[in-house]
Nucleic acid binder design. Structure first.
Length: 464
RNA sequence: GGCGGCGUGGCCGAGUGGUUAGGCAGGGGCCUGCAAAGCCCCGUACUCCGGUUCGAAUCCGGACGCCGCCUCCA
């Protein structure tokens, strides 16, 4: 069984499942109001890797991730552009899925939208009001954080010290500065829904409670998201469930932030790179590899140098795929299942080491290191003419990278007729030892964007 | 002010009480007509100061520095 860090406990512990063999995971998704950036890319990749790994090991994974499609920022943008909120949200969501496809992030099993769950949220808020955990003000309904004894569990701080540092704008009507809006009273020109406590729209912290409980049920296994959601967002979700006496997530886990020049990347700082820009600049698989090569809870520094580093490391893996004629085993919607037959004797040890690393708090950097060692080992065997063992080890490497969602690609496809002809001419020239001609043809191929490699079977070209 | 995390060789980045992380970059060699790819060899790192220990980068204490959260944020 996998061990994972639990943000509520503050330590790595066994992931104890509600139902043996089945894992239910809720990942806090995006608010769709702008282009997805590298930070979104990281969290989706991290939890995609976890999902894939658990699936690979034969667990039945129920993976839910929401889209927040009602929110202040969506409303603000819609107003600024004179468009309907739903139009802005739909457009941004389309961008989101396009970016996910580029990254090879598998689509969640369920993608609940906040606007589809307003009725459930209204019910939940009513129940909180009945229990005295929420109160009405002139501008909506607020949750009273003092109603939950262990409020601050995820923050790792008691309510008092959180209150002391609160920078929240103090509203006269709030009983405690940390109290948060469950429902925002309708304002002219804003989307709203009817409710017994007044027309309005839901606050951000309620939707996930309703959607997670509805789709995954009480006591679901794991709730994850970016570290910046730990407090107050997740704390507040927890508080609502706790106030109602409904078992919520059994485990919590959070991924580290993406940094640029050592500082957190965020839309508010304006130092973000969109995933579309990234994809225009590099093979998105390089970003997955970059993400895999750092621990998911550590900050991840992304800059041209770290990306270039990952690109070159990926090139090594692709060269490996070329040498052993490996087919990519992972794709956006392709989850690989563990197949014992993939693991020949030569690869038993590799599998054990990779599994041990990943099952120890998803230590992908260590797993990747093990796989790179295996790459060297297989190359070595091949050099020594031990083709069978080399090939079997290579296939295991491919399978395990596939289990983490990284498809190795030979990059030899897309060869057009002209290129094919040049390659044939070059082979002929080399066979006749007309090296001047051979070099001239190679220059032509390079000009056409190919890298030329002479292997045992003659000239092979691949995309530069 | 409170809470949490981090400080590893040129860079990225694991790990850990005594044994090579790994990748990238760099140097040397092998292979190659020359390359490319691949293989071999090379760096001998762990912020600083104390302490524990036969032995600490790894444990304890302190100092310094950096980052995150405490407001929207993945």
């Amino acid at each position: 069984m996998i061990r994972l860090f639990d943000s509520a406990r503050g330590e790595v512990c066994d992931l104890r499942l509600r139902d043996p063999g089945r894992v239910s995971i809720y990942v806090c998704g995006p608010t769709v109001y702008g282009p997805p950036h590298l930070g979104h890319g990281r969290f989706t990749l991290v939890w995609d890797v976890l999902r894939r790994w658990l699936t690979f090991q034969g667990l039945s994974v129920e993976f839910v991730s929401n889209i927040t499609d009602v929110d202040d920022k969506i409303i603000a943008r819609a107003a600024a552009e004179g468009r309907a909120e739903s139009e802005v949200a739909a457009e941004c969501e389309a961008e989101w899925w396009a970016a996910m496809a580029l990254l090879g992030v598998a689509r969640p099993d369920e993608v609940p939208h906040a606007t589809d769950y307003v009725a459930g949220m209204v019910e939940l808020i009513e129940a909180l009001l009945e229990r005295g955990a929420a109160y009405r003000t002139s501008d909506g309904v607020y949750f009273e954080v003092t109603s939950v004894r262990d409020y601050g569990l995820l923050a790792g701080q008691p309510l008092e010290s959180l209150r002391a540092g609160a920078r929240v704008g103090v509203s006269d009507e709030k009983r405690t500065p940390l109290d948060f809006a469950l429902w925002k009273a309708a304002k002219p020109g804003e989307p709203s829904w009817p409710a017994p406590f007044g027309e309005g729209r839901p606050g951000w912290h309620t939707e996930c409670v309703v959607m997670a409980l509805d789709l995954l049920g009480e006591g679901f296994d794991l709730h994850t998201g970016g570290l910046d959601l730990k407090f107050p967002h997740h704390e507040n979700e927890r508080a609502q469930a706790a106030a109602l006496g409904r078992p919520f997530a059994r485990h919590w886990d959070h991924n580290g932030m993406v940094t640029v020049g050592g500082e957190k990347m965020s839309k508010s700082l304006g130092n973000f790179t969109s995933l579309t820009d990234l994809a225009a600049r590099t093979d998105p698989r390089a970003y997955r590899l970059l993400v895999l090569r750092s621990h998911y809870r550590s900050p991840l520094e992304v800059n041209p140098s770290t990306v270039a580093d990952a690109e070159r490391a990926l090139a090594r893996l692709d060269a490996f795929a070329r040498r052993f004629d490996l087919d990519p085993l992972a794709g956006a919607d392709r989850l690989v299942l563990h197949d014992r037959h993939d693991f020949a004797e030569e690869a038993d040890d590799l599998y054990e080491r990779v599994a041990a690393a990943l099952n120890d708090d998803l230590d992908t950097p260590l797993a990747v290191a093990d796989l790179f060692e295996a790459v060297t080992a297989a190359n070595q065997m091949e050099d020594e003419g031990r083709h069978g063992p080399a090939r079997r080890l290579a296939h295991a490497v491919n399978t395990l990278f596939g289990a983490m969602g990284l498809g190795l690609r030979a990059g030899t496809d897309g060869v057009d007729d002209v290129t094919r002809r040049l390659v044939a001419e070059r082979d002929a020239a080399r066979a006749q030892r007309r090296f001047g001609d051979a070099d001239r043809i190679r220059d032509q191929l390079v000009e056409r964007g190919w890298v030329v490699e002479d292997g045992p079977a003659g000239t092979v070209v691949r995309r530069a």
